[in-house]
């Protein structure tokens, strides 16, 4: 499949990354290579295994009482901007 520069830019938008033109150019080549490699994979069909060998099942944690986590002051101290205990970000323009 041919990868266009537009797709590179779209990917950058998804990843929330600001890229230079040179980066976009070099990534363009790299993504093409990635797609070619991915398409080139040919492996025998795997027997439908339910879980990875040796992989543990998720053992749900036993019921427990709530435990204290971080205090509001700690959360606020970590945040670049806060207001009345909330984390503040620029106004989100559209609803949701």
């Amino acid at each position: 499949m041919e990868i266009t520069q537009e797709q590179v830019k779209k990917t950058a938008a998804m990843a929330k990354l600001r890229l230079s033109d040179e980066e976009i150019e070099s990534l363009h080549r790299l993504l093409r290579e990635l797609v070619a490699r991915s398409a080139g994979i040919s492996l025998p069909e795997e027997e439908a295994s339910t879980a990875e060998p040796g992989e543990a099942a998720a053992a749900p944690a036993p019921f427990s009482r709530p435990q204290p986590g971080l205090r509001q002051e700690e959360v606020v101290a970590l945040a670049p901007a806060a207001e009345r205990g909330f984390i503040r970000v620029p106004r989100v323009m559209d609803h949701e």
Binding site: T11, L17, L19, L27, L30
Partner: peptide
Amino acid sequence: RRRLMLGTF
């Protein structure tokens, strides 16, 4: 940045 781009893609 390059790896995040590859991964996102």
